[in-house]
Simulated scan of single mutants.
Amino acid sequence: MRHPRSPRRRLGALGTLAALSALALFTGLCGAPAAAADNPIVDDPPVLATAAVLDGKPIDGIPAGPMVAGGYHVHSHLTLYVDGTEHWVPAGVGVTRPIVLDPTRPDPVITAAEGFYWLHTHDESGVIHAEAPTPHDFTLGEFFDLWGQPLTRHAVGPADGDVTVWVDGKEYDGDPRDVALKEHTEVQLNVGRDVPFQPYEFPSNF
């Protein structure tokens, strides 16, 4: 079972939920910190492509708004390889500005924001959060649309080449956009050279 490749990535996934409620409460009571609107996400070099800056309008019918309390909440994971080298999914996919970053972390971990689409990322761990008031069918294509990047059998974001798709340890022959994102779905996209499926171990609180 593969763990995130560095302790930094593991803590990014685990630390988000702990910091989220406290900072969200602080933001609700006191307003966002003055620097929040100018607090950019600085992507680490392995990030494949930065997250699109979104205006909160629905995308693929998915709305943005406050974090959904209760309701439907599942986590899936996306791993990306380009010619055998792993690239990371950025923090802030499906998140509208201004944002609040965890000030104790050198890497970007989003703890509060103006709004969250029902499909989003808080950090660079590859964990995709799907949160909606009621059960909802989400797809990988919708996630890439929120990311602002293409996804086909010949392109994953800015990376071009033949794409091999793995879902839960099995090779997937269909359109990668149609992959369903359900509880603990593990997706691996290999552009160019194929890489054997690398299982991901979700944090215990996910």
Rank of each mutant, 00 (worst) to 15 (best):
H73G: 11
L54E: 04
D83Y: 09
A51Y: 05
H122F: 07
R5Q: 15
G169M: 03
P199N: 06
L151I: 00
P199V: 04
H120P: 09
L25K: 15
S21Q: 14
G192E: 13
E183P: 12
P4R: 13
G157K: 05
D44C: 14
A36E: 12
Q188C: 03
W166C: 04
H136K: 13
G115N: 09
L80C: 01
A52N: 14
V156M: 05
L11E: 05
T111P: 04
W118N: 08
D38Y: 15
P135G: 00
L29G: 09
L78K: 03
V187T: 02
A19I: 10
A155K: 14
K182D: 02
W118M: 06
P4K: 13
T50Y: 10
V95G: 00
R5V: 15
P106W: 09
T134P: 11
T134H: 09
G174T: 07
A36F: 14
P33F: 04
G61N: 08
V53A: 15
L23C: 10
H77C: 04
V100R: 05
G192M: 05
E201H: 07
E171P: 06
G12R: 00
D38L: 13
G174D: 13
A112P: 02
P150D: 07
I99N: 01
P98T: 01
H3P: 15
P46M: 01
V95I: 00
D83F: 08
P106C: 09
T164L: 08
A32R: 02
Q188I: 04
T104V: 12
